[in-house]
Each structure stands twice: as structure tokens, then as C-alpha cells.
Design a protein around this nucleic acid. Sequence first.
DNA 1: ACTTGGCACTCAGGAGCGCTGAGTGCCAAG
DNA 2: CTTGGCACTCAGCGCTCCTGAGTGCCAAGT
Lengths: 337, 337
Amino acid sequence: MLDDRKLAVLRAIVEDFVSTNEPVGSKSLVDRHNLDVSPATIRNEMAVLEEQGYIVQPHTSAGRIPTDKGYRLFVDRLSAIKPFSAAERRAIETFLAGAYDLDDVVMRTVRLLAQLTRQVAVVQYPSLSKSAVRHVELVPLADRRLLLVLITDTGRVEQRVVELPDSSGEDAVTRLRAVLNGCLAGRKLTDVAALAADLPERVEPRERANAAAVFSVILETLVARHEEKIVVGGASNLTAADFSQGLRQVLEALEEQVVLMRLLGELDDQSAVTVRIGAENDVLGLRSTSVIAAGYGSADRPLAKLGVVGPTRMDYPTAMGAVRAVARYTGQILAES
Amino acid sequence: MLDDRKLAVLRAIVEDFVSTNEPVGSKSLVDRHNLDVSPATIRNEMAVLEEQGYIVQPHTSAGRIPTDKGYRLFVDRLSAIKPFSAAERRAIETFLAGAYDLDDVVMRTVRLLAQLTRQVAVVQYPSLSKSAVRHVELVPLADRRLLLVLITDTGRVEQRVVELPDSSGEDAVTRLRAVLNGCLAGRKLTDVAALAADLPERVEPRERANAAAVFSVILETLVARHEEKIVVGGASNLTAADFSQGLRQVLEALEEQVVLMRLLGELDDQSAVTVRIGAENDVLGLRSTSVIAAGYGSADRPLAKLGVVGPTRMDYPTAMGAVRAVARYTGQILAES
DNA sequence: ACTTGGCACTCAGGAGCGCTGAGTGCCAAG
DNA sequence: CTTGGCACTCAGCGCTCCTGAGTGCCAAGT
């Protein structure tokens, strides 16, 4: 359907357009890439490519620019993820290794990704539901109030205030803490629900109401509503690419946690770098952007996802390389701690 | 220096310009506001106002627009903070009361403020150094590693991994926990440093090295480096006001924690609503924006600051009202928990 | 059957031009 | 001090014209 030269032409068009941001014409193509044919030949090829929907002219008598479909083909078959040099990888590694905190890791990851790609970076916090409980802590606040602190093995700390039905002494809290930790420590949060049945047996009858209250808070707020925080950075990079009037829309979309969740949630293959181009994002307002995302965390224990958002006119190979590298190292850093 | 009518004219100019975003001329002024004088008179007044530097014409034969100095006078003497209606206040209160979490309170505050003012909202987390310690928790991770969790009375939870010089048993950790809590609970974080001397006496000699390690981590990372997180929201509102080319600059500035800290840090009067107009912000890139900020928290215990950033052409009375109201209720909510 | 030079055609974008209308400053009279 | 009158200015708009990049097509060449 498309012979090798047509593909080469498409690749050249994408590359030129990405770097110059101007419709690329037949003449400049043969100049910049050393194709051994005349502009006229290229024009014929381009006519075919346009017919097939890979490129368009913004107006008659202008060069061609790639369509979403064109970018798609480019990404799928015409380009390879650009690997990072050893020096770059080392830089990434040391930058991330400087973090002392989950928050800090995430923050650094966002900054790094935004800077490397010169796009908007989006990083999801390691999801609770995929983490395991490391420790449960109960702190008495008042007679009938506890602060519940739950620490996961990814270093995430969640806290909630629990209102107790019965008042509870210091030692009762200590017992409950021991029971909870015995029960939950090391367990995946997704498995916690299954343990509900066991719990009553392990506490004294008159403490059961309180234990149940604490447990249900854990369930409701931490597991069921597995809220997953997302951090966005590098928004100023959006101003470089001129979204006609859609900049507002894009900014709005990026402020909606829900939208971002959908955006990252859609990619299914956890480990690979996924690209969604233009209208492939069925998120209203991001129809003119591309999203490059990947999961991070080890293969056996995926943690969450991260990626970049930018105009469809984007340097895919490099951006994909950056996303892959950052995902890899962020996963590594988190695995170590 | 400026008689009443000149002030009235300035006020009218500011109000009109804010609402229309077009230079305002003498004729439209007398029309919209029912001044009982002729346009010519107004022109004379305007000539004086311009001479004094309160207004300028963007080009000959256009209306006038206020200068920073003009806005300053307007804010200081020509306008009153617009109070919120009872209904609005109730709405704010219930919206904030729905939060179950410090993070959630802050997030809701940002969203609320951005929505009320249609500007960019900036909220600083309750600062650690102004909080008191509610509880210190130590969780053994490995033989020589502890997770230190510090819970403040503003509901903030901070965590760090501590590497211990000596290995330490379960019971040693328990003792250390008891000592630390005995020592620190209820103390302000700023006072923690003063307690360093007491500590060694309270632990057994062979545990002193570990205790010192934990304590120094508390000091170094929590007190000394009193990092104060800042959350920004409503960036899409910036697209409405057309910053000529400075939008990028503004967005960049808003992504720099340090810059934001300076921005909020500069206001000294904790309780009042402070306005910094245009070039009064000596932050590069925010020269064309105004910042309205206020501290929140009770008078005796200020927690942190919040505010909005927008174009100098801004509805100051309303924005100031919103900032004041939100600061008040956020402070209230945090005081309750 | 593909490639290529030639050629006519198209059209966005910039430059030049003139008009209009909002707005001004000034002045002389009220 | 206020006001109507008047001459002046100039941004913005619409108009036209021109240029140059780029195209599609065709007929000749390989």
C-alpha cells in the first residue's frame, strides 16, 4: 500500500514539521534530506499520502503537515524510541536519588520530565490499592477520637480521623494497634477487605465496636475510594506551542484530576511506553494534544503511571525516550526504599 | 492635592476599565456614571490625573487606563473590601467543611478561591514551624532503619527515614518513642531545638547514639528546612486576561516554589488582606500582575498564607472579599480539627 | 512505468493606502 | 471653574495589490 519511499517521505515530513513548525513543501524536503529524486517526484508521493489521509495542506499552495493518522504511522513504524546516553541516564539517576521523601520523589520526577521533554509532565502517585501495608498507627486525639495513620511500603502515608462509638483507654488503643498490625502488615490493600471477617474474633467483645469503626474507615476511605493523586508540572511549556484558542481548554483539562486519571488510566500495557495522538484522546479539550505515558514500578508490582502531554507536533522519539527512562528510574528509586 | 471629584473620576476609571478592559474616555465616563458635569470638565480632571501619574493613555487619542499608582490609590482609599453575602459565606463554609483531610482542605481552598475570584489561587500549607507536635511515631523498618512520622496539631504528617548508627531492638524503639513523645508532644516545632540539651539525660547511655540520630533528623529536616508546600490552582484563568507575551513568564513564576514563597512571604501583617500591585512585586515576571494575599489561622496562632494572582486589571474589592472570606473559613476549619 | 522539467494556477501574508470615529487639548465664552 | 466648540491625532479596519512559496498537471525523457 505504501512503498518504502512513501514512508521515507512521511517520516521526513514529520521530522521537518516537528522541528520547524511550518508546513513542509516538496522542495525543502529534497534539500534537507538527501533524497535522490526531484521535487516533482516527491509531489506525486505527497499527493498519494494526502489521499490516504496521512498528511494535509492547511490551505492550497502551502506545504503539508501530518495528520493524527500520519503521526500514528510515524510512531508505530517509522521511528524508534530514542535511547538516552549513559551520561544523561546518570544525570537522571542522581537527580532522582537526591530525594528523601515520597513527595519529593514525585516532585522531582515531574520537574525532571517536564524539563527533559519541554512539555507538560504528569505523574501519578503510587496507587494505594497496589501497595501493601507496612504499618498502621493509631494516635489518640480525644476520648472518642483517633488519628489513623497508614503507612504503605511505597512510602506513602495516609491519615484520617476516626470517630469512635465507645470511649477507649490508652491500653485498648495499644491492643487494637497490635491487632491491626498483626492482621494487616504486609498485606496488599486490595486484600484488606477479605480480612474483615477475621477481625472480630481477635478483639475483646467490648472493643469490637471501636475496632469495627477503625476498620471500616480503613476500608471506605483508603481502599474503596482509592484516590490517586496526580501532579502536573511544566505548564509554561504549553505557551511555546501555539494552541489556536485551545490553550484555555488544555489548561482546564490539566487541572481536572478526573480527566487526568482517565488519560493515564486508559493505557493498559503497564510496562511499555504508550502514545495517544490527538483525537485518540477522547478527552474533550485534549483533542489537539498527544499523550505519552508509561507505567512505573517493577514488572511484578506496577505502582502507577506517568507521562507527558504536548501538542501533536511533538518530538516523539525523544519524548518517548525520556518517559521510558524517567519511568524506569523512578520505579527503581521507589523499589529501593 | 487631589480633590474629591478627581478621586471620583479615578475611581470611575478604574471600575470601568476593570469591567470593560478598554481605555475609558471622558464621554463614556459621564454617561455610565451620572456625574453632573460635562465631558470637557472630566477631561481637565483627567489631564491632571495623568500628570500626577495615576492614569495614562496607551496612545494619543485613546481613553485612559490606570497605572499601578492609580490602582494603588484606588485600593487604599477609593474602595472597600466587598463583603460576602450570608448565602455566599454559608456556601464557602459548607464547601470547606466537607473536607476530611489536611490535603483535602488545602485542595478545596485552592479550588474555591480560584473559582470565586476567577484568578489563579495560591495556598500555602500550614507551616510546620508554627505548628506544635501532636505525636511522634517510630516504625522499625530494618535493623538499622526507622521510619519517623511526625504529626502536628494542624493535621500535617511528615515522614522521614532515619538511618541508625547502632542496631536497635523493638523495645528500645518503644522506649525512645516514649521519651520523644514525652519531650516533644505539645511543643512548638520552633522550640524543639531548645530541647536538644535535655534529651541525652533521658535515655540510657547505649541508646544515646540512636536517639541523637533521630533527634537530629527531626531538627534538620523538619525544623531547619521548614519547607512550606504551596499549591496553585486555576491557572486556566490566566488565559482570559491577555498578557501580551508574558503569559509564559507568569506561568513559569507560578511553578517556582521559591518565587511563590517570596510572594506570600513578603506580606507582614498576618491578619489583614494585603495587595501588591504590578511592579510592587519585585518578582521578575510578575511585574504585570497583582497579588492579593492574607494570612489564615487564628490571631494568636497564624498558620500560613493564601491569596490570588491576577492581572493588575482586576476587581480588587471582590477579590479582596473572597480572599478574606476564604482565609477566615479555612483558618476556622483547621482550628476545629 | 516511473521520473522530471516546465508551466500555469492558487492563495496566505505582508505592505501600502485612505477613511472613520473615538478621544484629546485648547480656547474663548458663560 | 465650567462648558461648548473646534481642530487635531491616530489606532484599527477594510481595501487593494503584490509577492513568493507551493501546488497539480502534462508532456517529454529514460
